[in-house]
Simulated scan of single mutants.
Amino acid sequence: MTTAPRSAARRRALIAAALIGATALPFAAPAFAQAGAYPSRPVRLVVGFPAGSGPDIVARLLAQKLSEGWGNLGVVVDNKPGAGGLIAAAEVARAQPDGYTLLLGETGQLAIAPSSYGKLPYDPKKDFVPVSQVATSNFMLVVNPAKVPARNMQQFVAWSREQKGLFMGTFGAGTPGHFGAYLFGDATGLKPEPVHYKTTGDALGGLFSGDVAAAFASVGLSAANVKAGKLLALASSGEARSASLPDVPTLREQGYPQLAFNAWFGVVAPARTPPEVVAQLETALRKAVQSPDGKARLEEAGFGVTGTSAQDFAQVIAADTVRWGKVVAATGFKAD
């Protein structure tokens, strides 16, 4: 008489056990990754800028080197351009913190945006965990030699004072090149008027047409045009001369000791990503950019190679947030 009830109870117990197991599955992936199985599927590396841009070049090199190190498992570069990289950053901030969605972040998204935007769709400090800064990029102050007669900084400043206005192209509002123009104005006593372009191609077009007199362009973007004679580099924004354009003196060398700035690129993951996964990513990224092939390719493209620890990258972001915050405040700029 008791067989049926006992069988029913047994079935209910088995179903309950199965349900518990099923509900536990979503939480098993991070634990599995912590056990050393990460990565077990392709990783998505989100970039907030279009194909062919500086961040995209860095991301694609990382994707290749990481994929090779992970047995060609696959790293997919996902370009999500728009709003100066904010759209991409917001998407990654909301992603599952399992190490399979990462952001190739840069100075503007992580250090400048908190000061230049009244309200961000993400919090750089709370929504991300730094993994590694992988590269830096200095800027060249470039002019079109067919439109601007100056051949050095002294001549350029003198020529600019004679003009009705100094229009300087930027590769987007809120970028290092944008605020670099303000820093340049403070150092020289000039009052440049930033002209924001949506794409790098548009900005270069503005230089070639003479719509703008100058721009701070990354070494990677400007080097080929400088070597071809289409643009003239008057100065480098770096602490030292660029290996790609070693004949171009720094701004400091030319009498502007306070003028030294650059941009950086680094990988961040969504907050609450397991520390073990972050540690594995850090090791893989540092190996990728510091390998002979990875380093040579980045330097050839005009980038400085770093490959920092997660802790050091966090310190860079914090320090630059303060530094650029002061610059933004001095300009009174607000993007929204």
Rank of each mutant, 00 (worst) to 15 (best):
F171P: 02
A330C: 15
A181Q: 07
E300Q: 13
N79W: 12
A31Q: 14
P292D: 05
L190N: 00
V212W: 06
L45Y: 00
E299F: 13
D98G: 13
A89P: 08
A319K: 12
E276T: 12
M140Y: 08
A18Y: 15
V76G: 06
A63I: 01
E300G: 11
G71C: 13
A213S: 10
P149I: 03
F139G: 03
A35C: 10
A213D: 05
R252T: 00
G172P: 06
S236V: 00
P50G: 10
S116M: 04
G36C: 12
Q163K: 04
D211Y: 04
E106L: 07
A135P: 06
T273E: 13
K198I: 07
G332I: 08
P270V: 05
K164M: 01
A240Q: 07
T273Y: 15
Q311R: 15
A59Q: 06
G108T: 12
G54F: 08
V305R: 07
L232F: 10
A16T: 11
K126N: 14
P176R: 02
G220A: 08
G69D: 07
S137R: 03
L281T: 10
M140W: 08
V134T: 10
F303H: 02
K326C: 12
A301P: 02
G54I: 05
E299K: 13
K80A: 07
G238P: 05
T321W: 14
F303S: 03
A235I: 01
K119F: 13
Q133K: 10
G332K: 11
L251Q: 00
Q34F: 05
A214Q: 06
A88L: 08
E239P: 03
S242N: 01
H178G: 02
R161A: 01
A83R: 08
V219L: 10
Q155A: 05
P114R: 15
N79L: 10
A88M: 07
V268A: 04
G36Q: 12
F27Q: 10
Q154C: 08
G36M: 09
V148P: 06
E282A: 11
R272H: 13
D312H: 07
S67L: 03
A279Y: 14
V219W: 04
K80G: 00
A173V: 12
A288K: 10
F303Y: 07
D211I: 09
A260P: 00
G185I: 09
V77G: 03
L141A: 07
F261L: 04
D186G: 09
G255Q: 03
A296M: 15
V248W: 05
V316F: 08
L110C: 13
S242Q: 04
F261T: 01
E299C: 13
V134G: 01
A301I: 07
G169F: 02
Q64P: 07
E162I: 03
Q163Y: 05
L19Y: 14
P39L: 09
A51L: 11
W70F: 11
Q254K: 07
A335G: 13
A8V: 06
P130C: 15
F128T: 09
N138I: 09
K125A: 13
I20N: 11
G108L: 03
G69R: 01
L251F: 05
A310M: 11
G210C: 06
